[in-house]
């Protein structure tokens, strides 16, 4: 059986790097030259979606999908989210308005936002943007979304693993609740 976890966020939020940190095999990347330098200055971007895979044994596997970051692909996000066991929202703290970014992703995911275990990873944070973690928590509270917010550096494997650990634990809690 296949299980999936989504990693979503704006262009340059670190989705591809995060997948590369945990994938068994080299992640399949669908990067092309970035023609939207107004949205992000990075030279390439994901045109379809990246994915990595973990063989869980017994015929099961975990697929990790990175959504394409451009808003014009937002129609795909809820489709990708169907049946997912978790969503990691990566927020790029260096962007002009990270909370608005997160808000647009949550809206695009629609109903999935309330039903799938989720965590917010605040990437590229520095002293100047440290206010963002409680700010995002306040924002989520106002939306009635009880998700954890973690400062993260997706270049560090251990920090990416922490985000996954939260999703696993949230799923364990759900399983326990239903038992």
């Amino acid at each position: 059986m296949e299980y999936k976890i989504l990693i979503t966020g704006t262009m340059g939020a670190g989705k591809t790097t995060a997948i590369q940190q945990v994938s068994d095999s080299p992640a399949v990347l669908t990067d092309v030259h970035n023609t939207r330098q107004d949205e992000s200055a990075k030279p390439t971007t994901t045109a379809a979606f990246d994915f990595g895979e973990l063989d869980l044994g017994e015929g099961d596997c975990l697929r990790i999908y990175g959504t394409p970051g451009q808003e014009r692909f937002s129609f795909m996000w809820p489709i990708l989210a169907r049946g997912a066991i978790g969503i990691i929202y990566l927020v790029d703290a260096t962007r002009e308005s990270p909370i608005d970014d997160l808000d647009s992703f949550i809206k695009a995911f629609g109903e999935s936002s309330g039903t799938i275990p989720s965590v917010v990873g605040l990437n590229k944070c520095n002293d100047e943007s440290s206010y963002l973690a409680p700010a995002i928590q306040d924002y989520l509270d106002s939306k009635g979304l009880q998700w954890p917010v973690l400062l993260t550096d997706v270049r560090e494997r251990s920090e990416v693993l922490e985000l996954f650990e939260i999703l696993i634990s949230l799923n364990e809690a759900l399983v326990m609740e239903q038992a």
Binding site: M1, Y3, V22, D24, L54, D55, L56, G57, E58, D60, L62, G83, A84, I85, G86, S113, G114, T115, I116, P117, S118, G144, L145, Q146, L161, F164, E165, I168, L170, N171, E172, L174, V175, Q178
Partner: peptide
């Protein structure tokens, strides 16, 4: 019921979750 908490475990069970954890930590 005051806040939205996930309600569907997505067909996953404790054994699969334990294997995901184990694979991630050992991968």
């Amino acid at each position: 019921g005051a806040s939205k908490v996930p309600s569907k475990p997505g067909g996953v069970n404790s054994s699969v979750l334990a294997r995901i954890r184990s694979r991630l930590s050992g991968a």
